[in-house]
Amino acid sequence: MRYIKKIPSTDKELSEKLISEGWEKIKEPSNLGIATLLSVPFMLINGIISIVILFFLYHPLQEFIYNSKQGFNISFTINQSTLIYVVIFFLFMIIHEFLHACFIPNFLKSEKTYWGINGLFGFVYTTEKIKKSRFLIISIMPFLLLSIILPFILKDLGWLNEFTIFLCFVNSVGSCVDCLNICIVGIQVPNNSYIVNNGFETYFK
């Protein structure tokens, strides 16, 4: 796995080669902005799932929701603790991306798998040929591990609090594009097919 500054753009020659070899292009959003817009329904669904889980695990959240009619105040002060929280939030988002990478076959030795940081967020990108079932696992694992399973672990460890709840919830709604990709691939790609990325284009055969 190698470091790159940004996700590579689509190689038109490679696209033509893939098509000539029998690969078919998946119908998908042409850029991240459109993908994010189309993933809003998944954002809502993921958020509801996360809130339901956290509601039953964290009693203060129940009290907050039941007493929300009374109103609440939010104060924000920048201090050393705030900066620590920002760093932890950033690392949590990086963990999300590396969980994607961990399920890419031989990701550490792969010459076709890359990682990088784009603004405040990290990303993982691969041009490895991946089986459909593995692609679905790669896509869902950060949501499953960080927003579904992790809250139960934090509860048992006594580490479930407002900040860790916030992290799990943000990861949940932030996984909406992953869920959109799962839906697109699940519908368009036949079982036992392979998937390969070329920039922002995806092909299957």
Rank of each mutant, 00 (worst) to 15 (best):
I140N: 04
G22Q: 09
T36P: 00
E21Q: 15
V196W: 09
S75A: 11
I45R: 02
N31L: 14
F64D: 02
I138F: 06
K129H: 05
V196S: 03
K6D: 10
R134S: 07
E21A: 13
F200R: 08
I148S: 01
F56P: 02
I149E: 04
L14C: 02
L91V: 14
Y125C: 10
I88E: 01
N67A: 04
G186K: 09
I184L: 15
W159C: 09
L57Q: 05
V52F: 11
D178H: 09
L145V: 15
K6I: 03
C179L: 12
G174M: 07
F107A: 06
I95F: 14
N118G: 00
M93K: 05
P60G: 11
K17D: 01
L18R: 05
T126S: 15
S147H: 12
F98H: 07
Y203P: 00
E128S: 11
F89S: 14
F121R: 13
I184P: 06
S9Q: 10
N73F: 12
M43A: 15
P60T: 10
F89R: 07
L180M: 10
K69Y: 13
W23T: 10
Y3I: 06
S81W: 14
I51C: 08
K129G: 01
Y85M: 14
F169K: 04
V173D: 05
E111N: 14
S30Q: 12
G119W: 04
I130A: 01
I187A: 08
F89T: 15
N171C: 11
K17H: 08
I153Y: 11
T164M: 05
Y194Q: 12
I84N: 04
P29M: 03
M1R: 05
